[in-house]
């Protein structure tokens, strides 16, 4: 892990106007600061309603901030003005959202190739990479299925590799496995770790599940209730590669879990 921060968040804030008639506006996030190092797997846990999605939307530049700044490699992202937003920061920040957001009219393969097509980077090499990723997550044979013909877990995998295929330096993940059953979820977590080991991308992974946050991350941030701030920071020095199923009984895991548990109200 290098000390150089790849992405920095400084005093970030977001407020929403309240219903007409009431004058106080609500801060969902306020004065939030943290940074992510190159190649780091950062997980963020917080109670639901702590603005986790909003935070990622702002970092991904699809939502404006009400204050503060986001820096990518020391370059300040234009995040305070809706007109100058640059979603994805020129394809350098990938975003795996809570819903799979696959394009329903494209087949699975076409969906995975979609970013390459829009970026004009579809060639033999990238196509081979896409095929490799499809095989890695066990989707081979389903290339020509439409999203509605795939199971929830399969759609999730497709949306995951759709972001991995164009290899953005930072990937944001917003509870990507939230809606899945426990079994599928564990399998996908293993898949994700395996994929991460291939490339060691920088990942910011948001979840409300403490177990997931510890099992996946190098470091875990705990957020407070709205307005969200950093309540605590925990280094997860569990050895890698990790065994997702076995880790739960690891005494070290239990110790970290309890520390985080206390901070999440």
């Amino acid at each position: 892990m290098s000390a150089q921060a790849l992405l920095e968040v400084h005093d970030l804030g977001k407020r929403f106007a309240s219903r007409a008639g009431r004058d106080s506006s609500l801060w969902v996030i306020r004065d939030l600061s943290f940074s992510v190092a190159d190649g780091e797997f950062l997980t963020i846990v917080g109670p639901s309603g702590s603005g986790k999605t909003t935070l990622l939307n702002m970092i991904a530049q699809i939502d404006v901030a009400s204050g503060g700044e986001v820096r990518f490699q020391s370059e300040v992202a234009p995040i305070n003005d809706p007109k100058s937003l640059n979603p994805g920061l020129s394809c350098r920040i990938g975003y795996v959202t809570q819903e799979d957001n696959l394009l329903p009219w494209r087949t699975m393969l076409q969906n995975v190739l979609f970013p390459l097509v829009v970026q004009g980077r579809l060639n033999d090499e990238t196509r081979a990479r896409a095929e490799m990723l499809i095989r890695t997550v066990g989707l081979a044979g389903f290339e020509n299925h439409y999203p509605h013909e795939l199971s929830g877990g399969m759609r999730k995998r497709a949306s995951l590799i759709r972001t991995l295929v164009y290899d953005p330096p930072v990937i944001l993940m917003d509870e990507p496995f939230g809606a899945l059953d426990a079994q599928t979820r564990t399998v996908l977590q293993e898949d994700l770790l395996r994929l991460w080991n291939l490339g060691r991308k920088t990942i910011i992974f948001v979840t409300h599940d403490i177990t997931e946050a510890i099992a996946l991350g190098d470091r875990t941030l705990v957020l407070t209730r709205a307005p969200a701030r950093v309540a605590g920071e925990h280094k997860i020095d569990l050895p890698r590669p990790r065994d997702i199923r076995g880790i739960l009984t690891d005494p070290k895991f239990i110790e970290i879990y309890q520390r985080i548990r206390e901070q999440v109200q």
């Binding site: 929403f16 309240s18 007409a20 969902v28 309603g49 986790k52 999605t53 909003t54």
Partner: peptide, 15 residues
Amino acid sequence: GTETPTGEKMATQSE
């Protein structure tokens, strides 16, 4: 964004 953001869903909506 016209609703009071009481939950995560609201926040998602208010992109």
